[in-house]
Design a protein around this nucleic acid. Sequence first.
DNA 1: CTGTCGATGGCAGTCACTGACATCGACAGT
DNA 2: ACTGTCGATGTCAGTGACTGCCATCGACAG
Lengths: 198, 198
Amino acid sequence: MGRWEPNAQGRLAEAALDLYSERGYEQTTVAEIAKRAGLTERTFFRHYADKREVLFAGAGELEKLFVQAVAGAPPEAAPIDALARGLDAVSEVFADRRAYACRRHAVITANAELLERELIKLSSLSAALADTLRRRDVPEPAASLAAEAAVAVFKIGFERWIATPENTGACDLAQQVREALAELRVVAAGDAAVRART
Amino acid sequence: MGRWEPNAQGRLAEAALDLYSERGYEQTTVAEIAKRAGLTERTFFRHYADKREVLFAGAGELEKLFVQAVAGAPPEAAPIDALARGLDAVSEVFADRRAYACRRHAVITANAELLERELIKLSSLSAALADTLRRRDVPEPAASLAAEAAVAVFKIGFERWIATPENTGACDLAQQVREALAELRVVAAGDAAVRART
DNA sequence: CTGTCGATGGCAGTCACTGACATCGACAGT
DNA sequence: ACTGTCGATGTCAGTGACTGCCATCGACAG
């Protein structure tokens, strides 16, 4: 047993999400978050680089998971198919965390600064994926484009998943992402009939 | 004639880019920027919402230009072709500003906070494009996906343009963007042979 | 018993950003 | 010419994010 309550980092993250939800990101001070977690402001900044980062603790693991799934695809798979593996893998992670994902998403979309941080995390993800594709001998600019497209597919699939009422049949993230990927293929092909479909 | 030197906003933007280039974004204080422009810190914040925004004054016009070009495409054009119009229009704007674009790009990529701001501007652009496509009766998620893809195409085309030595034959932005768009079509089609090409 | 170590607290300081109020020259109306 | 309004700026005090430095304290090894 340590000298302090365990999991200081987790307590800070929970306190932050609570406060950001209740009174908004800007109306919350770091001192308040720390106090709710039974710590001081100074200690908050030892665990998280800044006031936003406390909502993005899991980004690193997510990136690792995505990258490993892509890297593990058969060498002969096309870039887009390798990326599809990663999309499936990442989608699974969120399957049983929909409520948490919704809360977090609501907080982030409500504040521009948090949105900026989210975007740079996705950009970092995209860069990591592009690098992974390059290691699979995909040349530029195909690697970067495929990576950016895959991240866009996930982002849009995710948003549609969040927007879906929970008791709907089609409230599966993996399914939304697959649909988005299929739609990208159609759009990129330049099908003018896109507008004729639902 | 006014009471003060004209174009305070422009002087601030120039001073900021100079200082950010010379000693880096973080090592520059707003007071220093204002002083170099012959103004005070308080006045800086009357012209720009924050220390980063001073580098993104033109983002609004760029978005407007892109959107109008897309909206002006023939109604029967496929989404991707309408977006290609916008890409062409935007590329033209940068044609004779390569040196400035390079300087600005170097400053932005050197700092994570500035990168975040750049990404949210691109995100805003993507949202505006998706909205424009929706007005052209493109359904979701096709509209959002096409918009995100177009922005990715521009981003990557732009980066390759910046990275190209100036005296190279292929140092035209519009051309880089067109190549990136073509590459996206190939990648999205799932062509495993991507890796076989240059 | 003692020295080290890691997580924390306390405190002073910098800087981004804001609100309230004062200043000053231009310009319009009289 | 007199005067009142207006817009851009200056001044100043304040808040809050974030950092550096040093002190504290319990655990643990020897």
